[in-house]
Design a protein around this nucleic acid. Structure first.
Lengths: 274, 274
DNA sequence: CAAATAGTGTCTCTAAGACAATATCAC
DNA sequence: GTGATATTGTCTTAGAGACACTATTTG
């Protein structure tokens, strides 16, 4: 009779064929645009971080940052590491978006991807903005349903670059929506559908007030928090109602945001659990 | 300059070390127990399907059905295939529970697991009950919080077998709760925490009336549907309120369930999307 | 004071919970 | 009729949305 020790000694994991495993990370942020006249509050824009591929396959296409899982790390650690290596941005909270494992999704071979969404605060971006080595670019993101039931994903970087992808909803079981790519546009691999799913996850998370705090610094005004939710979900909310709903999730500080040409706003922070 | 074709020809995926990839599936069902006196409605019990391991590692421990991803299939196809091979049960709707990738989670080596939950209807179980080849056993499942903030997972098969695992909540971001194992009991690998997470997913899904229909046949009584939700979430609901809430999700048939010693119940079916 | 945003009070409407009442069958 | 469940009606309460009003700052 073989003992467990003997079994493990004789067991050779290399006997079986294995896929390569990667992570792809959809990093979102909100840009506070200070344009317009005089004393107006800034406009907000939801943005996503992409990388221009320098080599094959999908040379010169745009892709989500990510890379191969290395021995000794978890998938989540891999996601954080690859994100930092490729963009200089250190993601905080990861949100699982799904596993992409169609056998032909990568021309290099059998490569499956674990997709994550994460949120980067305005602060963190400023901290890494000076890093020239990074080839990462933030794109304005819009994702809208068309008349015929399809979806259009549009990614824009100023006036220069516009990427348009066409998708279709395949399935929406258990609150998670999956998409099918009709036209990937300039996006590499199946990243168009990963981005669409990630945005769907982000939206349902923002709806439950889950992810919205991560876009802002430690202390924030309630108006800024409201604009985060409005921007992500593409809706508008009446201030009185928003304040009532978040009141249980935030606590006052004794600081104010002054010098804006109008009544100063009290700064709040997120209430610690219970 | 290298062309894409050349690049792919020279690219050798075997140059990099890769993990083995598996799926583990937590299959849930609800047993309608017809005990008690005379004309009472049956009691319900939530059950989960486990397999007794015949070989190392974790010989004689209980584990979730699952197995290695094979070339040419998706993770979801793998989950369905392994489930069928090992238990004779054909799962319908898969729900992603998370990726388990701690480097030391499997003594055989670098093996990461994609965990799924699925729902098996009473009907489907009856269809496979005669299959003796299967070593799969359905366990009653209970998962409760203790005074000190920990959790106890108890799995019971009649009077014979009782498995008890102790867990702790680690994190609960974005509606997905992760656990840490304090004592795995007789469960193999890290399956105690996979089961705990799967049950959490199932509960939050049942709360939104997502998974509850999958436990029942095509047509069902509203009381049966209500008991499904009550059993999964471990709560009790007033019939009038439950009926009001599901009314938009079901449609009447012209059939009745008779012969139960009391007023016959109308049979309903799930309303097709919109 | 004017422009702009911050913050509050409150009315209405809808959905959820509680509870009571009525309906229908097998025996 | 009795025991059991099926099904409906409605009172109360909590929360969401709408809207109007007050407060405070800079120029």
């Amino acid at each position: 009779m073989e003992s467990e020790k003997e079994f493990l000694k004789n067991y050779n994991i290399k006997d079986y064929e294995r896929p390569s495993v990667t992570t792809d990370v959809a990093a979102f942020t909100i840009e506070f645009r200070n344009e317009q006249s005089y004393r107006r509050n800034p406009e907000n824009a939801l943005k996503i971080l992409l990388i221009k591929r320098k080599g094959y396959p999908f040379k010169d296409h745009w892709a989500l940052p990510g890379g191969f899982l290395q021995k000794g790390e978890t998938i989540e650690q891999c996601a954080v590491r690859e994100m930092f290596e490729e963009t200089g941005v250190q993601p905080a909270s990861l949100m699982s978006v799904g596993v992409y494992s169609e056998p032909d999704r990568d021309p290099r071979g059998w490569i499956i991807s674990n997709a994550y969404a994460c949120v980067i605060s305005d602060e963190d971006i400023r901290a890494t903005a000076g890093d020239d080595a990074s080839q990462a670019v933030w794109f304005d993101i819009s994702f809208e349903q068309t008349q015929n039931g399809g979806y259009v994903l549009t990614l824009k970087n100023g006036e220069d670059i516009t990427i348009t992808s066409l998708l279709e909803e395949v399935d929406s079981r258990f609150g998670k929506t999956t998409f099918q790519i009709k036209d990937p546009g300039e996006l590499a691999f199946d990243h168009a559908k990963i981005i669409a799913s990630a945005l769907t996850c982000l939206r349902s998370s923002a709806e439950k007030f889950e992810a919205i705090f991560d876009f802002l610094p430690e202390t924030f005004t309630l108006t800024a928090l409201q604009k985060v939710q409005e921007t992500i979900m593409n809706i508008s909310i009446l201030p009185a109602n928003f304040r009532r709903k978040v009141s249980s999730m935030v606590e006052e500080t004794d600081q104010y945001l002054t010098g804006a040409g109008h009544r100063p706003a009290k700064l709040f922070k997120r209430k610690s659990n219970r």
